[in-house]
Simulated scan of single mutants.
Amino acid sequence: MTNATPTSLLSDAGVSIWLDDLSRERLSSGSLQKLIDEKNVVGVTTNPSIFQAAITSGTDYDAKIAELAAQGASVEETIFEITTTDVADACDLFSPIFAATKGIDGRVSIEVDPRLAWDTEGTIAEAKELFKKVNKENVLIKIPATLEGLDAITATLAAGISVNVTLIFSLARYRAVINAFQAGLKLAKENGHDLSTIHSVASFFVSRVDTEIDKRLDAIGTEDAKALKGLAGVANARLAYQVYEELFSTERWAVLAEAGALPQRPLWASTGVKDPAYPDTLYVTGLAAANVVNTMPEKTLDATFDHGVVTGDTISRTYAESMLTLHRLERLGVSYNDVVALLEAEGLEKFVASWHELLADIETALATARKAS
C-alpha cells in the first residue's frame, strides 16, 4: 500500500476516474493511453466546448477537413464526422476496460447538438443518430437535463441506448432525472431490451455552484457570508449522493434491479477548482464514495495524482452538515433556486456559443480547403 498513488486509492474507494477531454492528438500521440496506464483513467467525457477547442487548435484535423471538403460535406456534416470518429476511436481504446468492468467503465460520452436542448423530439432523433454513427456499445449519449430533455432521456433509454445526463445543478432536477431514467428502463424492458446492457450516469456540476454563490457572498460581505465561501459546491453534491441512495433503495427500483437493471451512477462534473484560494483537489477528495464517477480536466487529474489526500468515503456521513450549509446560505439571502436556474441557463449558453464558434471555424476551414484544391 505504501506505493499506492492517490488515483489508485481513489479507484479503490469506488470512484471511477474519467478524463474530461478528448482530441485527435490525445489519441494519436498515446497520451490518453498513458493516462489509462499510469493515472487510473477508465473513461472520457466530451462536450461542445471541448470539441471546439480540439478542432480549432493545431493541425490535427486539417487532412480530414480537406477530405470532407472535396466530398462536398456541409459544416454540420463535417463536425458530425470528426466528432463521432474521435469518439469511436476512443471507444476502441477503452474497449479492454469496458470488457473487464462488464460495461460499467470504459465509456466515452458524446453530446447532442446543444442547440437542441429545448427540443425534445430533435434530441431523441440526434441521440439515435449519434449512437448509430459511433456504433460502439461503450458510447454514452449526453443529453442536457433541461425540462425538455427529461422526456428525451426516457425515450433514448427506452430505445436501449446508454445515456450520460448532463448539466444538473439542482437536487430537484436530479430527482426528476432519476425518475426519467427509471421510466426509461421500464419502457426498455417492455420493448424487449436487456436492461443489464443499458448504462447511465447523471452529471452533477460542482465548481460552478461555488463560483456563483461565492460571488454573491462577496457582495454581502459579512463575516458570516465569508465563512460560507467554498462550501456550497461540495455540500450540494453530497446531498445529491443522498438522493441517489434514497431513490435507488425504493420498491420501484427493486423491480427494475430484479430485471437486471444497474443504477444510474452520480458523476461529478465541473471539478476543476476555479478559485486559487481553495485546494486544487477539493472537488475530488471531498467527493469520494462508492459507485460515483469523477470526470476531471487533466490539470485536476495531475493535481490529484501528485498530492491528493484520499481518505475513503468523504460523503456518507455529511448530509446534516451539508443541508445546514444550504440553509445558512438561504438565511443570508442567497437563493438556491435562483442560483441553479442561472447556472443551467449559463451552461447551455456557453455550449451553444462554443458550437456557433465551431460552426464558423469549420466553415472557414472548408472554404480554405476547397480553394486550395
Score class of each variant (00 low, 15 high):
Leu19Met: 05
Leu358Gln: 01
Asp105Tyr: 04
Leu187Ile: 05
Leu116Glu: 07
Glu77Asp: 13
Glu321Phe: 01
Phe205Ser: 05
Phe94Pro: 15
Gly43Asp: 03
Ser322Cys: 11
Leu326His: 14
Val15Cys: 13
Leu359Met: 00
Ala369Cys: 06
Pro266Gly: 00
Ser270Cys: 09
Glu344Asn: 01
Glu190Ser: 02
Leu326Tyr: 15
Thr7Asp: 02
Phe131Ala: 01
Ser170Glu: 10
Glu223Gln: 02
Asp361Met: 05
Trp268Tyr: 09
Ala125Ser: 15
Glu212Arg: 14
Ala99Gln: 10
Leu171Glu: 08
Glu251Asp: 11
Met323Ala: 13
Arg328Asp: 12
Thr271Asn: 12
Ser109Met: 14
Gly347Arg: 05
Glu346Ile: 07
Gly72His: 02
Pro263Val: 15
Val42Ser: 14
Gly103Cys: 04
Phe205Asp: 05
Asp194Val: 03
Glu330Phe: 08
Leu282Ala: 08
Leu217Thr: 15
Ala125His: 15
Asn164His: 07
Ser207Ile: 02
Gln242Ala: 14
Val310Asn: 09
Val87Pro: 12
Leu185Ser: 04
Glu121Lys: 05
Asn294Ile: 09
Leu10Gly: 03
Ile79Asp: 08
Leu9Arg: 06
Thr84Ala: 02
Ala219Glu: 09
Val139His: 10
Val273Ser: 02
Leu247Pro: 00
Thr368Asn: 14
Gly312Lys: 09
Thr166Met: 13
Asp210Ile: 00
Asp60Gly: 00
Ile17Asn: 12
Val293Ala: 00
Val87Trp: 00
Ile362Gly: 04
Ser170Thr: 04
Ala172Val: 01
Glu137Arg: 11
Thr211Ala: 07
Val284Lys: 00
Leu147Pro: 01
Ile220Leu: 11
Arg328Ser: 03
Thr368Arg: 14
Phe181Thr: 01
Glu330Leu: 07
Asp214Glu: 09
Tyr319Lys: 03
Pro297Trp: 06
Pro144Glu: 01
Ser162Thr: 06
Glu363Asn: 12
Ile315Met: 07
Lys371Gln: 03
Asp12Tyr: 08
Thr45Met: 09
Lys128Arg: 13
Ser203Glu: 04
Asp86Leu: 04
Asn236Leu: 04
Pro279Cys: 03
Phe98Asn: 13
Ala345Arg: 03
Ile178Val: 15
Pro266Gln: 02
Ile82Cys: 10
Ala152Arg: 07
Asp20Leu: 05
Ala176Asp: 15
Asp86Ser: 04
Val112Tyr: 05
Ala369Tyr: 05
Glu121His: 03
Ala159Ser: 14
Gln33Lys: 15
Pro276Ser: 12
Lys226Gly: 00
Ile97Gly: 12
Ser249Tyr: 03
Met1Pro: 15
Phe98Glu: 07
Leu228His: 11
Thr300Arg: 06
Lys229Thr: 13
Ile161Ser: 01
Asn138Glu: 01
Phe169Ala: 01
Asp105Lys: 06
Ala237Ile: 08
Lys133Tyr: 14
Leu348Asp: 01
Ser74Lys: 12
Leu343Cys: 06
Ala219Tyr: 03
Asp113Pro: 12
Lys128Tyr: 05
Phe98Met: 06
Ile198Trp: 13
Lys133Ser: 10
Thr314Leu: 11
Asp86Tyr: 10
Ala188Trp: 04
Asn179Tyr: 01
Ala69Ile: 07
Thr311Met: 12
Ala277Lys: 13
